[in-house]
Amino acid sequence: MNALFGSSRLSRNLIATAAWLCYVFLLLPSLIVIPISFGNPGQIEFPPRQFTLALYQQFFTDQAWWGSMVQSLLVATVTTMLTLVLAVPAAYALVRSQLPRRNLLRGLFMMPMLVPVIVLGLGLYLQFSNWGLLDTTTGLVLSHIMLTTPFIMVSVMSGLHHSDVSLETVASIMGASRPVIFFRVVLPQLKASIAVGALFAFLMSLDEVVVAYFLTGTKAMTLPVKMYSSIRWELTPVLAAVSTLLTLLSLLIALGIIALQRKTEANP
C-alpha cells in the first residue's frame, strides 16, 4: 500500500503530518461556527465561556434574518422544481435523439458553469433594470434556473447513459406511446439521478450570493445577501447561529447525495 512513494518511514510521516494539517484547515471553518453559535451573544468568542441559545433567539426574533431565510428556502424550492421540469425532458431529448448539432445545445446548457458568475450578475442587472425585474422574486428565480441547469443536466444525462435503453425499445415495440414510455419506463429508472441533481440545485440556489446581491434589494433579499452585508459591515455574532443552521442543512444534503450516488452505483 505504500508502494506509491517508497517505504521510507520519514517521508511517510512527513506526508501524513502535512496531510492532517490540511484536513484540519479544510474542516475547521465548517465546524468552528457550531460552538461559537452557542456562546456569548455580545461578541464572537472561541472557545465560548458560556452556553446559551441567545443567538438563535436573536435570529428567530429578527424579521430581517428569518424573513430572508424563508425567502431563500422559497427561491431554492421553486427554482429546483422549475429547473427539473425544464431540464429533465431536455436531457432526455439530447441523449435519445439524433438531432443535428445537439452538442451546441449541450454547450449552451452547460455554459452557466463556465462563465464567471460576476459577469452573469452584471448582465442580468443591466437586463432586469430594463425589464423591471430588479428586486423581484421572479427575476431571481429565473436567473437561478439558468445557474442550476448545468448541475441537473450533468446528473440526469449520466443517469440516462447508465439506464437500460432496451427496456424503452421493448416498450415501444409492444405499442407504448412516447409519453407512456417517458413516464412509466424512463423516469422510474432516473429517480436517483434526478434526486441527486435536485438536491445539488437546491443547495446551489440556497447558497448563491453574487447574482442575488446584484439583483435584489430590500424586498427580495435572500439569506446569503443578508449574510454578505452583515459580514462586511457589522460582523455580528448572530452570523454564527445562521452559519450553523446552514452548515447542518448542507451536511444533510451532502449525505443525501452521497447515499443516493452509492445506490445508483450499486444497481446501475
Binding site: Y23, L26, S30, I32, V33, F46, D207, V209, I231, L251
Partner: peptide, 24 residues
C-alpha cells in the same frame, strides 16, 4: 472517509467559510 473531509468545504456556503476564517 478522508475524501469526505476534503469535500466538506465544497458543500459549505462560501459565506460560512469566510465568516469562520475571519474568526479563526
Amino acid at each position: 472517509a478522508y475524501l469526505i473531509m476534503v469535500m466538506l468545504p465544497f458543500w459549505t456556503s462560501i459565506l460560512v467559510k469566510s465568516f469562520a476564517l475571519a474568526a479563526v
